[in-house]
Simulated assay, not measured.
Amino acid sequence: MNGDGTRAVRAGLPEPETYRPTLPGPVFTAHYHLHGDDDPATGPYTYGRDANPTWTLLERALGELESPDAEAETVVFASGMAAISAVLFSQLRQGDAVVLPDDGYNLLARLRERLTGYGIEVRTAPTAGDAQLRVLDGAKLLWLETPSNPGLDVCDIRHLSDAAHAQGALVAVDNTLATPLGQRPLALGADFSVASGTKALTGHGDVLLGYVTTRDPELAASVRLWRKTVGAIPGPMEAWLAHRSLATLHLRVDRQATNALAVAEALRDRPEVSGLRHPGLPEDPSHRQAVAQMRGRYGCVVSFALPDRDHARRFLGALRLVDDATSFGGVRSTAERRGRWGGDAVPEGFIRFSAGAEDPDDLVADVLGALDEAARG
């Protein structure tokens, strides 16, 4: 299977079996039958915190999407933050140093506090310009987020991975915004590809999920042991819904990327809009690196700033096809004034806009109409 669409539709499915569904339903169980003389360590399913057949199929599917050309293992989690935490806390020990982006997902700041409390040195630098290289010396792990959320800067995964590996450091990439159809970190040299499946991967705003994919069996085992130890496991229904959603991933990602670019282009000439960012815009500072690294899909997110908080609120209130909600990557467009959460170094009027799967003309018209209404005060 070479095409992204074909792979997404077929990923992780079991061999066809007469009178059985193409994708078996979720398996709900806390324990499995074990014979008295069986060695639990040799069985695939022994206890519900360790493994589940529904997870297995989803993990196989995600591995095929993240690493179609080389064997990889995926471990699924209850949320994206559970997946992020699993990589950081399974690999780092007291006295180690880790490099994080200072413009990444805002909960990284909370993780920084926790890591520091455990005696781990945390260094930060911006995503743009591969600036994390400047603080890499002696680090155990380099964490990249590209495109960054919410600023949409892009760094060179290959260059940073080569530099990190030359110093003996591991590399993890948050691939949430790009999805495996937009970017394949493992093929670019990263050791881990990590994502929140809550966003574009499942795409319907009804599932919390995360995952970690790696080509190194020992790294996979350490992450899996962390999941077992802390119990950060997904429910079987969530895992099944996620697998079900993969069949339309290519359709959703393509439509959302098209819509995001259309919205970004429509915002270019608006005098009240500043700081417009989308990697698909030729003039965007990240465009050249995005073209070199991403696979022709530049994501569903557009970021920009309006003059102030009140202007942003009026804009959000005037939208009719766009929900005022956090998160991104859903089939229904969303937007929010990002500063309401705190933790992001953004202006008060900063908007993170996530393009959904609506008709592009309707979506653009709604955005422009809302801008007109907001400008009138």
Results as ranks from 00 to 15, higher is better:
Gly168Cys: 04
Val171Tyr: 01
Val171Ile: 07
Gly151Pro: 02
Val122Glu: 04
Asn149Gln: 03
His159Cys: 00
Arg112Thr: 12
Val173Thr: 03
His159Tyr: 06
Leu144Ile: 08
Gly168Leu: 04
Ala139Thr: 13
Glu113Tyr: 14
Leu133Cys: 03
Gly119Thr: 14
Arg112Leu: 00
Ser161Ala: 15
Gln167Cys: 06
Glu145Pro: 04
Thr176Ala: 01
Ser148Lys: 09
Asp137Pro: 10
Tyr118Pro: 03
Asp162Pro: 00
Arg112Lys: 14
Pro147Gln: 11
Glu145Val: 12
Tyr118Arg: 15
Glu145Ala: 07
Gly197Leu: 11
Ala169Phe: 13
Tyr118Gln: 15
Gly197Pro: 01
Cys155Met: 15
Asn149His: 09
Ser196Phe: 05
Thr124Gly: 07
Tyr118Asp: 15
Thr179Lys: 01
Ala139Arg: 08
Arg158Met: 08
Pro150Gly: 02
Gln167Met: 08
Leu177Ile: 12
Leu177Ala: 07
Asp191Ala: 07
Ser161Asn: 11
Arg112Tyr: 02
Thr176Arg: 01
Lys199Ser: 08
Val194Ile: 15
Thr179Val: 11
Phe192Ile: 01
His159Lys: 06
Trp143Thr: 04
Asp162Thr: 15
Ala166Arg: 14
Leu188Ser: 02
Leu142His: 08
Val154Ser: 03
Glu145Gly: 06
Leu160Phe: 05
Val194Arg: 02
Ala172Lys: 00
Glu113Cys: 01
Ala190Gly: 09
Val154Ile: 04
Pro126Leu: 12
Asp153Glu: 13
Pro126Cys: 10
Val135Lys: 15
Ala178Asn: 10
Gln167Tyr: 11
Thr198Phe: 04
Gly151Ser: 13
Val171Trp: 01
Gly138Glu: 11
Leu188Glu: 12
Gly119Ile: 13
Arg134Pro: 02
Asp137Asn: 11
Arg123Ile: 09
Thr124Ile: 07
Thr198Ala: 10
Thr127Lys: 10
Pro150Glu: 02
Leu188Pro: 02
Thr116Ser: 11
Gly138Met: 06
Ala172Ser: 09
Asp130Ala: 07
Ser148Met: 13
Ala163Phe: 12
Gly189Phe: 07
Lys140Thr: 15
Thr116Asp: 00
Val135Ala: 14
Pro185Trp: 02
Leu177Trp: 05
Ser196Thr: 09
Val173Gln: 02
Arg123Phe: 11
Pro126Val: 09
Ala169Val: 10
Arg158Cys: 12
Leu177Pro: 00
Leu181Met: 08
Ala131Glu: 10
Gly138Val: 13
Thr198Asn: 12
Arg184Pro: 00
Leu186Asn: 09
Gly197Gln: 03
Thr146Lys: 04
Ser193Pro: 04
Ser161Ile: 06
Val122Gln: 05
Cys155Phe: 13
Leu141His: 08
Leu186His: 00
Leu177Thr: 01
Val154Lys: 04
Lys199Ile: 00
Thr198Arg: 14
Ala164Lys: 00
Pro150Asn: 00
His159Ile: 01
Val154Met: 12
Leu142Ile: 02
Asp130Arg: 07
Trp143Lys: 10
Glu113Thr: 13
Leu160Arg: 05
Gly138Lys: 09
Glu113Ser: 11
Asp191Leu: 09
Arg123His: 11
Leu177Val: 14
Ser161Arg: 05
